[in-house]
Design a protein around this nucleic acid. Sequence first.
DNA 1: ATCACAAGATTGGATACCAATCAACATTTT
DNA 2: AAAATGTTGATTGGTATCCAATCTTGTGAT
Lengths: 279, 279
Amino acid sequence: MSSRSQTIADKLTRAIIDHRLVPGCKLGERELSEIFNVSRIVVRQALIRLADDGLAQIERNRGAFVAKPSMQEAMEIYDALTLVEQGVAAQLSDRLGPAGWAELRQHVERQRQAVAAGNDALADVLGQEFHTVFVRLSRNKVMQEIHAQLVRRTTLLRSLITADFDYCNLLDDHSRVVDLLEKGRLKQAMDLIDTHHRAVVRGYIMDREVFPEMTPAEALVPYLDGTVDAATTAGPLRRMAKSPGNGKAASHLHIHLPKADPAPASRASNKKTNRGLPS
Amino acid sequence: MSSRSQTIADKLTRAIIDHRLVPGCKLGERELSEIFNVSRIVVRQALIRLADDGLAQIERNRGAFVAKPSMQEAMEIYDALTLVEQGVAAQLSDRLGPAGWAELRQHVERQRQAVAAGNDALADVLGQEFHTVFVRLSRNKVMQEIHAQLVRRTTLLRSLITADFDYCNLLDDHSRVVDLLEKGRLKQAMDLIDTHHRAVVRGYIMDREVFPEMTPAEALVPYLDGTVDAATTAGPLRRMAKSPGNGKAASHLHIHLPKADPAPASRASNKKTNRGLPS
DNA sequence: ATCACAAGATTGGATACCAATCAACATTTT
DNA sequence: AAAATGTTGATTGGTATCCAATCTTGTGAT
């Protein structure tokens, strides 16, 4: 069992990549310590981890906030992601065996079926996951960790965009990358990876304010599992219907949570899936 | 001014990459808190940062130790570094202007002069720095941070190897990479980067124990700025705490590892390798 | 309306304390 | 004597409480 601050950091991470905590959202120590029923220090340690990961930024004497990357930084993140995936593509085109190619194809196929079935949420998750599977096949844990961090940060970025992706298009990209690589057309595959990411970043419009729809307390409910003490809680069954005052201006920004938990395999240390709450 | 735990983390990082703290060395909370005159909690936060950076590993209820990567992990780190630098090379060969090429050449020249002057320590530092300058020219801060982290980890790895590099050879590599890139011979440059790193990793012999030459208290002396015992005054004088010049230039020293010991390599029977007591 | 200033809140950190766990030592048993 | 088994001490992970510095806010004076 890993440390408590790691657990908290993981939950906050998931809340962020699920877009339940949006960029700029204040992460107050006292507030979080009450939500998670831990001491402020544990929360601070968790926030340090978040900040190291680029998902939060800590301003001295002002506190921690969900990171709010600039357009410049957004492009840098996508550039770095492109660089990494192109490099991995080059490696795979050399060394990947038949089993690996099969796994990639199978993944693409699963996503295609999800799209066909109209399950957009699942298709979204699988689309994300493709990149992770891709990098995992390099069998380089260090690289995987770097890549996973970049993916988390791109996921955060999606909170800031007017997202309406053409998933079919991206799916085709995945499929074609696999095709090209297996045929040894490395250069073309790498170019496609580049345009793939550029297609995403092009849709970005970031000079827009994002308003939280819920307080952190509400946002974090799905991640509080049983281990919380039963003293103050009315149970983890709390629905978010409850609104303790403060119904700040709610913007219309629909958030969809993926159903299945794909466990983004963030840190090697923690693999608890706390998400299966009834809700 | 950043937080105190960040300051401590920086000092520990420098001590590690200067090989004053060697892999496996215990980083006790109380010990460090006394050395730095801070509370245990600040030390713990610093250790969390170190662990996130891959320079330390924290074992639950056992404490933190300077990371001791396996041979597998060492290769993964170098692989990742190669991937990153190859990718940056590809970018630079497209986009780098004359000023950039000039900066690279100038850097190589400075290292050449250091070698000519017999200043091995400086040549070593410059040799390391070349890679950093190289990546900085990509103008991608995210990539720079990723690369810097990888470089720190390779530097840590050097504590574990029988180091006897041919600096001239590596210097030539740097020079040739710049040449090849500027001429647009990207493929060859990338191959050279690969062999460059492979040349380093080939020298690795890691099934060897490393014994600390000094206690952490001794190892960390150079990084305790000015007022070691300034608990009461909490000096306004500690302004220059972050200046890296002090650490780098002055504190690079050659560490003579103990002669290869025919002791049993992997048997855990004798674990008391901590604390370089006079033996 | 604007500026200055006092009051409150929040963070960063220190200290003291506790429970759980691990390591080393001491003791018993074979 | 060697192995197995307590027992004790040290270290870590964590909590609660307190304090200083800083930021934010609200109020009052100009």
